[in-house]
Design a protein around this nucleic acid. Structure first.
Lengths: 160, 160
DNA sequence: GATGTGAACGTTATGATATAACATGTCAAG
DNA sequence: CTTGACATGTTATATCATAACGTTCACATC
């Protein structure tokens, strides 16, 4: 279960966080990256929250634990995590989420529930492919893409 | 020529702006919307620029012409235009562009050149369809979607 | 073990983007 | 000519993000 929309279903949360963290450590070791205390703690905070968090929300948590409490501290850590594919930025929310599946595929689509604000990462290979085709048709070369959908998650759709 | 990536090719710019503006007026008339001086002027500014502009850039133009010079003035006009499909927000740039084809299709993909910053609107029916399928697979209902690609436009790819 | 080097971190300050709240103006319907 | 709805203008502030600079620390080299 690594490409499904975990966030929309109950699951072994502690387990999936631990797994993602282990994946991050493996990736860091493999690539010779430094998963320093700040970076690691930011990733843990995102994993624990299991939803999109604003940079300043993360910063508050960091500061409460004795790390620096100025914006650059958290923005640098987030930049590192995003660059390495360990976290994602949700443009629509100016927020960040931990990547649930570091190291694989990547360039997922994000499904954002407008009701409960849950954010799920969905496999988007077909979406990217369609986008690349559309871009190629006008001579454009895609390097990075952002695909985000706003709507209703299963639970909130059911409640309505 | 209403679904192609105009921004990447030379074309009758004054003509396409006039056309889009006429389309906006027709749409406003048809829907009973008020295309007031501020709103109309914001749309014209976006059409003339023919690229993504930040809200404060637009505001500066407005202020120079005697309109209010406080952020809410331009943000309200932009919100109106975006809601009515006369302009689009480019999340990745925190910027706005005029819609080149008001009234049709809609929910285009945006192709953003990282070199020259040109932004083109590309037809994205197939992309949206793929996204809706992927979302449906996890029980999510898409209401609005954001599809943006960062890369190289034909001209800049050629120059490199 | 001293020392140079570079990356990460901390801090100050500021910049850029966006909205809440309220006052004023406009205009058509009653 | 009042009322009500909506647009605009203004003040103030919230929110998101980065430039610039100094300090610390791990580590390689001498």
């Amino acid at each position: 279960m690594h490409t499904e929309a975990l966030a929309f279903h109950s699951h072994d949360h502690a387990g999936c966080s631990a797994e993602a963290l282990a994946g991050a450590e493996a990736l860091a070791a493999a690539k010779g990256l430094r998963l320093t205390p700040v970076r690691r703690r930011v990733l843990e905070i995102l994993l624990e929250a299991h939803r999109a968090m604003g940079a300043y929300d993360v910063l508050q948590r960091l500061a409460a634990e004795g790390f620096g409490n100025q914006p650059p501290v958290v923005y640098r850590a987030l930049e590192f995590l995003v660059d390495q594919g360990l976290a994602h930025r949700i443009q629509r929310l100016n927020a960040f989420t931990a990547c649930m599946d570091p190291g694989h595929d990547h360039a997922p689509a994000f499904l954002i529930c407008r009701d409960c604000s849950a954010v799920a990462e969905a496999p988007a290979a077909s979406v990217r492919e369609a986008l690349e085709m559309a871009a190629a048709a006008v001579g454009f070369t895609v390097e990075r893409s952002t695909v985000e959908a706003l709507g209703l998650c299963p639970a909130c759709a059911g409640a309505a």
